[in-house]
Nucleic acid binder design. Structure first.
Lengths: 144, 144
DNA sequence: ACACTATTTATAAACATTACAAAGTAAGAA
DNA sequence: TTCTTACTTTGTAATGTTTATAAATAGTGT
């Protein structure tokens, strides 16, 4: 499953004329396997073992490249640093206000909203994002 | 109209025990009157005339205070800096991928999404955000 | 294996935002 | 009004993320 996704991603890179380097392979693999939404720095740190000489700039550069070919989405919350999410299927995120936990969840169509927005504003809509904020089950238990 | 909103905001500050300083007054006034969604730095620059000695830190401090009492929302897009939006009525934003223009638009209920998310994830939902991305009418005309 | 070009690395720089301590000031009490 | 106290502002330094740059390195097609 993860293997498959990685393979698809590499194919996407090939057909975009983006070279496949060991660093890129590792970053992608990490993004696919880790079910979380890591920051650039977290990716950097978790690959220190395999690539002791890798530069942070490499992580940033490649995340940008992945974004450009549509493999990765950048999530900018209130935090200081961006988080990166492998684009697989369409899904949204629900985020805990207390502990910051991010959970994926699926919801079918907000196409209607996009359509209305096009009509009202005259924009040509390409994309949308949505996040939901609340308190996760764990933080609900631990009474404050 | 704007006058009224400012008054309401000041009342909200009073009842929250937040002192009303000339700087706070000016920042709020600017946020309410400017129909845009300025960055902290833009606010700072636009008040240079009235408050030549005001520090950027003051702008940031007060935007945080306003956020805490619910007068202002912070918008974090892909940009380097946050934008700030006076909370008036519920509305969403549509953002131009090319020029960055932000236009408000209203849409009734995404309560359904919140409800579903609660059921699926077990979170207690408090809030959500959504943005739509596309190409504004002006940028559609100027062919690339 | 070669050559060409994209990529990596290391470092410095840019930028937004926050921390801190000293000086100043709003707001209620006397 | 004046006083007092705690909150704010200011100026500056520090922090942390992200980008720019140039030299060294390494994919990829021939």
């Amino acid at each position: 499953m993860a293997e498959e996704k990685l393979h698809e991603a590499i194919d996407a890179m090939k057909s975009s004329g983006v070279r496949i380097t060991p660093q890129r392979h590792a970053i992608l693999e990490h993004l696919i396997q880790s079910m979380s939404h890591p920051t650039a720095d977290e990716i950097y740190k978790s690959l220190e073992g395999k690539f002791p000489n890798m530069s942070v700039a490499t992580v940033y550069n490649n995340l940008r490249v992945f974004k450009e070919i549509g493999l990765v989405k950048e999530l900018t919350y209130g935090d200081s640093s961006s988080r990166f999410d492998c684009v697989t299927t369409d899904h949204y995120h629900i985020i805990c206000d207390d502990c910051g936990k991010i959970v994926d969840f699926h919801y079918p169509g907000l196409d209607e909203v996009e359509t209305l927005a096009e009509q009202v504003t005259g924009f040509r809509v390409g994309d949308h994002r949505m996040e939901i904020y609340g308190k996760c089950p764990d933080c609900q238990k631990s009474k404050h």
